[in-house]
Amino acid sequence: MAPRSEYFAIPVKGTKVPTGPDWLHEIKHDGYRIRLVREGKRVRLITKGGHNWTDRFPWIVETAHKLRSEQFILDGEAVVLGVDGNSDFRTLHSRKHDHEVQFYAFDILGADGDDYRRLPLTLRKTNLARLLRNRAEGIHAAPFEQGEIGPDLFRNACIMGLEGMVSKQVDRAYREGRCDHWIKNKNPKHPAYRRVQDQF
């Protein structure tokens, strides 16, 4: 059975960054959480609140149509990058740069009729990388690091002024709803720490 496009895994708030070989760590982009769905010639961008934002972000839609697979569901963040290469929520929220919005995919729930949600995260990452191979613009596989590097990576993310980091257990399936094997640690000096989150 194919995964439903409107259900999201939601990380829990962390008090410290987990360590160990069974965790991977992703920089948290300051953007809109989006489910990217392609079904043949139809592409949809669905927010956590269930809104259809397909018409907002043409670059993402255009790139999705160029991918070789005609059926997939990706989970990720829609972002605008500033001149420093970091995601810029204020610019994104202004709606003045919708044509510049890109998608950083950090998970794949299914493709070509196969449901990947029960696969361990490591295999989902492999399938995601395969789908996005040689696709350099518009849609990107979110980079990650694995293992003991987590706390150092988080400290550096804070120094660079990034929003924070999400740590995930590598051997776990995708679980919709609150997910205690996804842990989000926020940079307390970042504007997103004070901003009302997860409203879309």
Rank of each mutant, 00 (worst) to 15 (best):
170 V>Q: 07
38 R>Y: 03
185 N>S: 09
84 D>I: 13
136 A>L: 09
192 A>L: 00
17 V>Q: 07
21 P>A: 09
98 D>E: 00
153 L>H: 02
174 Y>L: 07
38 R>K: 10
85 G>M: 09
77 E>K: 03
178 R>W: 12
133 R>A: 14
18 P>V: 13
195 R>P: 05
12 V>L: 05
125 K>G: 05
120 P>E: 08
13 K>D: 10
188 P>E: 12
122 T>F: 14
77 E>W: 08
130 R>C: 06
101 V>A: 00
82 G>N: 02
91 T>D: 02
83 V>A: 13
32 Y>E: 10
83 V>M: 07
16 K>S: 14
76 G>S: 04
99 H>Q: 08
11 P>I: 14
103 F>M: 04
165 M>R: 07
11 P>K: 06
74 L>Q: 04
2 A>P: 13
158 C>T: 12
57 F>I: 14
80 V>C: 06
16 K>R: 11
82 G>R: 08
197 Q>S: 11
183 I>S: 09
59 W>K: 06
167 S>N: 01
175 R>A: 09
15 T>A: 04
97 H>V: 15
38 R>G: 06
126 T>A: 08
20 G>V: 09
67 L>N: 08
125 K>D: 08
147 G>E: 06
154 F>G: 00
181 H>I: 12
176 E>P: 01
47 T>G: 07
144 F>D: 12
71 Q>F: 05
151 P>C: 00
47 T>R: 04
15 T>Y: 03
23 W>R: 03
98 D>A: 02
74 L>N: 08
36 L>F: 11
101 V>G: 00
6 E>Y: 10
59 W>Q: 12
55 D>A: 12
7 Y>F: 12
61 V>N: 05
180 D>S: 14
14 G>F: 08
171 D>Y: 03
121 L>W: 11
107 D>S: 05
121 L>H: 06
79 V>D: 01
14 G>N: 02
105 A>N: 01
70 E>A: 10
88 D>Y: 13
84 D>Y: 03
